[in-house]
Each structure stands twice: as C-alpha cells, then as structure tokens.
C-alpha cells in the first residue's frame, strides 16, 4: 500500500515540458500587420512612423481566451468575438522592448528590415506555462512603454493607446499543449490601409472598431 502511494505521488508530481515557437514566417510574411498605413493622407502614413527617433517600441504578447474554437479567418474571428467573450488572459501578458526600423523604401525591403530587427531581439520566452484551452496568440506593437501596458497587481489589462499602435499580428485558435508545429502569426489584409484592422486586432475584446 505504501509503495502504491509513493508511485501515486511520483506520478502526480510529473511535469511534462514542451516548447512551442511563435513565428512570423521564414521571410517575415506574417508582418503585414506591422506595415499598415493610416488614411491621414492620400498616400497614407505607416503606423511605424509613430516610432520615436531611436525606433524603440514594445511588443506585447497576449494569449486570448476565445470561449470556443472559431474559424481562423479574420472575418470569422470578428464575428465570433461579437457574440462570445474574447479576452486576453490577464496573467499571460508579457512585453518585450525592441528597436524597429523607421518605415521607408520598397515594401519587401522594409519587411526584410523589420524581420532583421525582430531577429536581433533574439528568442523571447513569452510564457512559461500555456493555458490548456484554445487560445489566440497575439503580438501588438506599440510605442507605449512596457510598464504602461502591463497590469499592475491584479488590475485588469490596460487598453492600448490606439494612437500609439505600430502593428499587430495574431494566430489561428490553437491548443498550445497539442500543437505540433510552430504557431504562425499573421495579419489578413488586402491593402496597406489597414489601421482599423490593427485597431481590431489590438482591441481588448477583438471587436471591430468602425
């Protein structure tokens, strides 16, 4: 009987550890959300133009609880979250300070610069223990300091200042415990004027912001 209890305790104490990588794609194809422009001018102004001169920005990683398993396309997600509770899990937010390039030049060239800048930040452990439910992984770029976007104590997550957003990317709903590939982050857009998409992506409840 004593041996059985020991075995039980040992089994109970077992911890299975696995790593899941979050990626923007080999060529940074998931970075479209960081190349959006607003409509303040006819040609549009890149959101990354909001960066300070030194290019310092914050990448905020959230794990968003969806209350189910919706489809993956942006329209499906927006529709799902309109009728379900989609919210970032407070305890899982993390923030990484990065230096991003000022926008300019050819789109593909800039994508490469952006990718190189993110590579320079190196691998970053965003979460030590993933939630055991389907979540959406989101990375929001902002010129806000990490301190201002991280929750203080048990407070609710601070909302992003939309005027300081520089980009956003998100994953399909994924069960991190089970996923067997890297989790790809991307951003659905048909053109460069996708500021509203970034606003929806970074919204606290993933609601479409008209």
């Amino acid at each position: 009987m004593r041996n059985a209890i020991i075995v039980l305790v040992l089994l109970t104490g077992c911890v299975e550890t696995r790593s899941v990588a979050v990626t923007f794609g080999d060529d940074g194809e998931g970075l479209d959300g960081f190349m959006c422009k607003d409509r303040s001018t006819d040609a549009g102004v890149p959101l990354l133009a909001r960066l300070p001169a030194d290019g310092r920005a914050s990448l905020v990683v959230d794990f968003i609880r969806l209350g189910g398993v919706p489809g993956c396309r942006s329209g499906q997600l927006v529709k799902w979250c309109a009728s379900h509770t989609c919210e970032a899990i407070q305890s899982t937010r993390s923030c990484l300070e990065v230096t991003l390039p000022q926008p300019g030049g050819d789109r593909e060239e800039f994508r490469k610069k952006l990718l190189d800048a993110l590579r320079a930040a190196g691998p970053y452990q965003a979460l030590a223990d993933a939630p055991d439910e389907f979540v959406l992984v989101r990375v929001v770029g902002t010129t806000q300091a990490c301190d201002s976007v991280l929750p203080a104590g048990g407070d609710a997550l601070p909302l992003f200042d939309k005027s300081k957003l520089v980009g956003c990317a998100y994953s399909c709903p994924v069960l991190l415990e089970k996923v067997e590939q890297d989790v790809y982050l991307g951003f659905d857009t048909f053109d460069a004027f996708c500021e509203k998409g970034v606003g929806t992506c970074s919204d606290g409840e993933l609601h479409w912001q008209p």
């Binding site: 089994l11 109970t12 077992c14 299975e16 990626t23 590579r119 223990d129 993933a130 991190l176 890297d182």
Partner: peptide, 18 residues
C-alpha cells in the same frame, strides 16, 4: 488520477528566426 492531474507545462517562445 496522476494522468488527469499531472501538470503539462508548455513553454511558448516568440522566435522570429526559428
């Protein structure tokens, strides 16, 4: 019980250059 309650720890890494 151990299988049911055992901790499964999954580390998530943001890795631009996997």
């Amino acid at each position: 019980t151990a299988i049911l309650v055992s901790t499964k720890q999954t580390i998530v890494v943001v890795n631009v250059d996997p």
